[in-house]
Amino acid sequence: MAIADETDHSGSEDGENYFVSMTDMMVGVLFIFIIMLMMFALDFRTKTEVQENAVDDARKMAHKLEELRGQVGAEITLLDEAQRVRREMLRDIESQLQAEGLNVRVDEANGVLRLTEDSVRFNPNEADLKFLALTNVSKIARVLERVLPRYSACRLQSNAPPCRASGAPSVETVFIEGHTDSDGPDAQNWLLSVQRAVNTYRHMMGEARALRMLRNQRGEEIVSVSGYAATRPIDAGSSREAWARNRRIDLRFVMEVDSRQRLGEILKLTEEMKKEIDRLTQASGSGR
């Protein structure tokens, strides 16, 4: 179980995700690379004296650029598919929880299922699940046990179907996130938020043991915990009602796609293009 601390997490709920995926970073870098390449090409065209071999190199580089654009487009399509699969999963979970009489809210953009104070309520300065909260967490665990296997990379049971096909979007992690209100010492709230998440995790695993059998593409358990103290309020007010809403549990669903091979191909292609640019730069300078 991964437990977040004060140095690891800060900022608003809507302003950040858990982490920036390697694929997202690659796509951003590649777009910058393509823009720089286009600027170079425009400058290259303005040269009146260009050697023939440099022109041939330019054509080759244009072909590689088109290939690169196609690969980046494929990565974006895969990311879009992962987002679509997550929305489908969240709506399925939401529908089943509502059928159980639980009031939940879904933030599709950030992949968060928010358990409102009507579903899981904590008393001030307490981390224990009591009365109705225990019953509701049991319902949540059983719904996750039904839904998550369809979106997980692997299951450990001997009678389980084979792992999902490589490259297919699947769940990387489901974080059980604990939150507090802004009242009380900050250090105490950090500990309290983690305790709330851990207690929720333990009760879920006791009610739905099959959840611990679910694995991501690296073979790790997908259900984990984190705590945020009062750093991610959903109600900025200072009333008792606002504090009650902020003493909550969120479930955050992080998706993964197997992009390692494609990213390796893109890196190789960008390196080849860099060499082409270096040659064109030298040819452009000698043609002046």
Rank of each mutant, 00 (worst) to 15 (best):
V254F: 02
K60L: 15
K60E: 15
A230M: 09
T48M: 10
N246H: 05
L251S: 00
D8L: 15
L102V: 03
K130H: 07
Y18A: 03
E145N: 14
E221T: 12
N103K: 07
L280Q: 03
L267K: 12
D250Q: 03
V137Y: 00
L115M: 10
M89A: 06
V50D: 02
M22N: 13
I222V: 07
S226E: 01
Q98D: 05
F19G: 04
M273N: 01
A160N: 05
S95F: 14
K268V: 14
L113K: 02
I35W: 09
G15N: 11
I32H: 08
D183R: 14
A2F: 15
L42R: 06
R212G: 15
Q51D: 15
E88T: 11
M1Q: 09
I3D: 09
G15F: 12
R105Y: 10
R262I: 06
E66Y: 12
S138I: 06
G15H: 07
R59G: 12
R245M: 11
E172K: 03
E126S: 06
D5L: 08
E94W: 05
D107Q: 07
L144C: 09
I176C: 02
Y201F: 15
M22D: 14
D80M: 11
D118Y: 15
A58R: 01
R69I: 15
F33I: 01
L129V: 01
T135V: 12
V194D: 01
E52C: 06
E81V: 08
M213I: 08
K130V: 11
D56C: 13
R279T: 08
V20G: 03
I3N: 04
A197D: 02
V143P: 00
G219S: 10
D258L: 13
E172M: 07
Q83S: 12
A208R: 02
P233Q: 12
R146E: 11
P169Q: 04
E6M: 06
L251T: 00
V50M: 11
P149V: 11
S152H: 05
N125T: 06
S284K: 05
D8T: 13
V29P: 03
R247D: 08
I176V: 13
V112Y: 01
K274S: 07
R114C: 05
G70T: 04
F33R: 01
F131H: 06
R105T: 09
S138V: 12
L97H: 00
L134R: 06
S193V: 00
E272Y: 03
A242W: 08
E220H: 13
S226T: 06
S138A: 13
S138M: 06
D43E: 13
M25I: 09
C163E: 02
G167I: 10
T281E: 02
R142D: 03
S182M: 08
G264K: 11
M273C: 05
E67S: 12
I222T: 02
T7K: 07
D8E: 14
K47S: 12
M39Q: 15
F44M: 03
D8N: 12
V120Q: 00
D181R: 00
G11M: 07
L102S: 02
R146F: 09
G184L: 01
